[in-house]
Amino acid sequence: MNDEELLTAAAKGDAAAVRDALQAGASLEARDGRGRTALLLAAAADHVETAEVLVKAGADPDARDHRGDSAFLVTGMTGGVAMLRALLPARPDPSQANRDGDVALIPACERGHAGYVRAVLETGVEVDHANRHGRTGLLEAITAGDGSRPYREIVELLIGAGADVNRADRDGVPPLRHALDRGQREIADLLRAAGAR
């Protein structure tokens, strides 16, 4: 019963109840029916204080659920900078990839989470990692984005982190061509200034 109480409390963001469940003997790495740990549940709902309690207790930020997601990976989807920072003391593996081959950087680029991209680049995540579709964070920021300010900021951050501005997708289309095809002129200018062809 303690395990169930722990998972429920984590999903709700009830840090005090999480502490109580752990003190009562709940397993730190207990999983729900979908393979999610308490830390993954807390991270997915952006319950930072709860995650901090679990990290301090030694929870694994890289434990995967049935879909291949982990607490660290899910922060790339939510864009939670505070959650990312809460997980760092647990030393998550920035090279871990989800079922689509995405490291945490890639969904953040796709969704326009510029603040998160800035933070996750400090973890040592590979800036040119390509997913199963052959797309890097830079390609996702262009193809999934609309050229608006958050996406321009992401492109600038990636260029500043040394992203290969000429790395094409698996169809051989480079970032500059994608930007031009989508009318993203300011992003195209950023790419050209960084040596894109």
Score class of each variant (00 low, 15 high):
Met1Pro: 10
Asp3Gln: 10
Glu4Arg: 14
Glu4Trp: 10
Glu5Leu: 10
Leu6Ser: 04
Leu6Val: 03
Leu7Gln: 04
Ala11Met: 08
Lys12Tyr: 12
Lys12Phe: 09
Ala15Trp: 06
Ala15Lys: 14
Ala16Tyr: 05
Ala17Glu: 12
Ala17Met: 02
Ala17Arg: 15
Ala17Cys: 05
Val18Arg: 12
Val18Trp: 03
Arg19Lys: 14
Asp20Pro: 00
Ala21Ile: 01
Leu22Glu: 02
Ala24Asp: 14
Ala26His: 12
Ala30Phe: 05
Asp32Glu: 09
Gly33Lys: 09
Arg34Glu: 02
Gly35His: 08
Ala38Arg: 10
Leu39Arg: 06
Ala43Val: 03
Ala43Tyr: 07
Ala44Val: 03
Ala45Ser: 13
Asp46Ala: 13
Asp46Glu: 09
Val48Asn: 06
Val48Leu: 02
Thr50Gln: 02
Thr50Phe: 05
Glu52Met: 00
Val53Arg: 13
Leu54Ser: 03
Leu54Tyr: 10
Lys56Gln: 12
Ala59Lys: 13
Asp65Lys: 11
His66Arg: 15
Arg67Asn: 10
Gly68Asn: 03
Gly68Lys: 09
Gly68Thr: 06
Asp69Arg: 15
Leu73His: 15
Thr75Cys: 07
Gly80Tyr: 05
Gly80Val: 03
Ala82Ser: 15
Met83Asp: 10
Met83His: 14
Met83Arg: 08
Leu84Ser: 09
Pro89Lys: 14
Pro89Arg: 07
Pro92Trp: 07
Asp93Met: 05
Asp93Leu: 06
Asp93Lys: 12
Pro94Leu: 03
Ser95Cys: 07
Gln96Trp: 04
Asn98Cys: 04
Asn98Ile: 01
Asp100Ser: 08
Asp100Thr: 05
Asp102Thr: 05
Asp102His: 13
Ala104His: 15
Leu105Ala: 02
Pro107Ala: 03
Ala108Asn: 06
His113Ala: 00
Ala114Lys: 12
Tyr116Phe: 11
Ala119Glu: 09
Val120Lys: 07
Leu121Cys: 11
Glu122Leu: 00
Thr123Met: 01
Thr123Asp: 00
Glu126Thr: 11
Val127Pro: 14
Asp128Arg: 05
Asn131Tyr: 13
Arg132Ile: 01
His133Thr: 04
Thr136Val: 02
Gly137Asp: 02
Gly137Ala: 06
Gly137Glu: 03
Glu140Arg: 14
Ala141Trp: 04
Ile142Arg: 08
Thr143Leu: 00
Thr143Cys: 02
Gly145Phe: 04
Asp146Trp: 11
Ser148Arg: 15
Pro150His: 10
Tyr151Glu: 01
Arg152Leu: 00
Arg152Gly: 00
Glu153Leu: 03
Glu153Asp: 13
Ile154Arg: 12
Val155Thr: 11
Leu157Ser: 04
Leu157Met: 04
Leu158Glu: 00
Ile159Pro: 06
Ala161Tyr: 12
Gly162Lys: 15
Ala163Gly: 07
Asp164Cys: 08
Asn166Asp: 01
Ala168Arg: 01
Asp169Tyr: 11
Asp169Gln: 09
Asp169Phe: 09
Arg170Ala: 12
Asp171Lys: 13
Val173Cys: 07
Pro174Gly: 15
Pro174His: 13
Pro175Arg: 13
Pro175Met: 02
Leu176Ser: 14
His178Gln: 11
Ala179Gly: 11
Ala179Val: 09
Arg182Ala: 10
Arg182Thr: 03
Gln184Lys: 07
Gln184His: 14
Gln184Glu: 10
Gln184Met: 02
Ala188Leu: 01
Ala188Asp: 04
Asp189Tyr: 06
Asp189Val: 01
Leu190Phe: 11
Leu190Pro: 13
Arg197Gln: 09
